[in-house]
Design a protein around this nucleic acid. Structure first.
Lengths: 343, 343
DNA sequence: CCTGTTTATGGAAGCCCTTCCACATAAAGA
DNA sequence: TCTTTATGTGGAAGGGCTTCCATAAACAGG
């Protein structure tokens, strides 16, 4: 069927070693021999067998990427960056998408011992100490994206800073009663965004009001970063009546989408009655005219691959933690609280 | 480092063949021998080397999926279905995303000869006759999704039917002047959707008016399924003034998003001044209150994998072409043309 | 022209499996 | 008890590549 290196060798009248050298840019080959081999390769439409090559080289040129079952643009943008950079460096992407909680570990385990890939990108998923140690000890290249572990390379967004900026923006518009809708605190980003929110209040001399903080108590396995959670949380705030906050910082755009729906259903207006700021800047945010914190996802994806490649080339690199800054994107979902100052 | 089958054999005091049998559910092994081997495997944390296995078995248990650089929910939903079904059947997904035009062929070529994967899913990309023939001759399993070639398995959406239904819906609401915004006709779906639109007009005794058909003349390499194209196309229709259509069928939701923007900017109202129906039912459609044709993408993804697996098991299967039906999802973007009958 | 280098080349060994064949052992039949 | 058959088992061969080592060819220098 398909030609092997032996066929090429025979046709070119050389040994298999020479064929290999012709293919692998070795300097140890005479130019005209190389030309002859390349000609034979061309004639036979020969293409090296990826698996055999991988087996011999102990390199597969594949990168596994483990993501939570993709819900939304968040992962799309990231994937684009990852994909582009991987392609540029001739790496193929093996995509694992995890739905149930502990499948992550199963994937990590396989990854670690099957030698199917040269490295792993773990996205938005928690890295257990146990596996972190295994990866570290085995020097198996891994980079965490939007996730954190002190022993491993990680790229995260400045969630605290982002939340701080978002909240500060609302404060700067004159709001005094500023609420927050958050996801479950077992999620690190949710935790940290809450911190940023609190800090912004404190720094500007505003009290932190427990009643203004609504955290999804999603009974399912989810983390609360979804529309339904945002919808319900906002309903809860609205139910406070006149005491309700005049502005709300919402931990993710997708929750904000649900929140907006809840607000509209209550016949309240945005931003006249309630101002909101989201987080993520997913594509939909633009359609919702939602002010939000933009994350440089594409760039993070690219950087993640670069870092992974660096680490594959040198496993002794010191562990880094790279933080990416968010940027406030102002749209129409927040206005000044002072009457008459509205847009 | 990691244990090989030889280590396991030695530890269990058996031959390597026996270890292999213990792993591969062979009946040719005594239960207690098997137990002993499995014990050794457990002790050594042995895991077969995927590449070596692939090389020996001539099977990689990987499927390549080639998609246009993912823009939007269209691919997300499809990917979810693909991913889920692949995981269920223990196949790994190798993701290739194509941006520039002819990279597709490069991927197909590699796929065909590198033996890296057991099968290919080609999504929304044109299959050239040349490669179609190569795939067919080599009996290399491939399934086309949202793409078509007579010699290969393909799953498509009933684009004509969908366009027909969308247009008919507008007609049933009383509209007489119905326009269409389409993408470039070099794209098969665009072509076929236009046919459906025309047929609906004709079947209902309405004339086809050339001026009401706007086809993006995108100068870039794109096919016109994007927001900017929709925006400009709609501006063109609006520029007709009072002669403009009262309803427009738009070939994709993403174009519809652009069109809606254009409509709003012209101070026209939806659906009072212009009714629109889109195509795809991407997540955003709900937020835009856009009536549109829903495609069963998740299901298509699943089916695609199933079909691919079937074909991998039996390359002699007759070529099939499976069509999926679309469904009209009514939201608020279309109203009756007759004054007073509006919502 | 010969010796010492340098450069080029062939092909065995190794990567880690599966599979097949030969052989051993146990069970069954006579 | 001795065949015959069924059942288990070991390990060579093979899958297609890279790499290394030994050897051959080319090139200098004297």
């Amino acid at each position: 069927m398909t030609a092997t290196i032996y066929d090429v060798a025979k046709r070119a009248g050389v040994g298999i070693g020479t064929v290999s050298r012709a293919l692998n840019e070795s300097t140890q080959i005479k130019p005209d021999t190389k030309a002859r081999v390349l000609r034979a390769i061309h004639d036979l439409k020969y293409q090296p067998h990826a698996l055999a090559q991988g087996l011999a080289r102990k390199k597969t040129h594949m990168i596994a990427i483990i993501v939570p079952v993709f819900t939304g643009y968040f992962y799309l943008e990231l994937l684009k960056g990852i994909q582009k950079e991987a392609a540029k460096n001739n790496y193929d992407l093996l995509l694992y998408s995890v739905d149930e909680g502990d499948r992550t570990e199963a994937f990590l385990k396989r990854t670690l011992s099957e030698s199917r890939v040269d490295g792993v990108l773990l996205v938005s998923l928690k890295m257990s100490d146990k596996y972190a140690e295994q990866f570290q000890q085995s020097r198996f290249p891994i980079v965490l994206v939007d996730s954190l572990h002190s022993d491993l390379d990680s790229l995260t967004v400045e969630n605290r800073e982002g939340a701080y900026l978002a909240t500060s923006h609302l404060i700067s518009l004159g709001h005094k009663k500023i609420g927050m809708v958050d996801a479950q605190l077992k999620s690190a980003p949710a935790q940290v965004r809450l911190d940023g929110y609190k800090k912004a209040l404190v720094d500007h001399g505003l009290p932190f009001n427990d009643a203004y903080l609504v955290i999804t108590h999603d009974l399912t396995e989810k983390d609360g970063f979804n529309r339904e959670a945002g919808y319900e949380s906002m309903q809860q705030l609205i139910a406070m009546g006149e005491d309700r906050p005049t502005a709300v910082f919402i931990a993710s755009d997708i929750q904000a989408a649900g929140a907006i729906q809840a607000i509209h259903e209550s016949r309240l207006r945005i931003p006249e009655d309630v101002s909101i700021v989201g987080f993520d800047d997913i594509e939909m945010a633009e359609y919702l005219s939602l002010s939000t914190m933009h994350q440089p996802l594409f760039e993070m994806g690219q950087t993640a691959i670069q870092r992974l490649i660096d680490r594959m080339n040198d496993s002794e690199l010191p562990v880094i933690r790279q933080r990416f800054h968010t940027k406030l994107v102002i749209r129409k979902s927040c206005g000044s609280q002072v009457p008459g100052m509205n847009l």
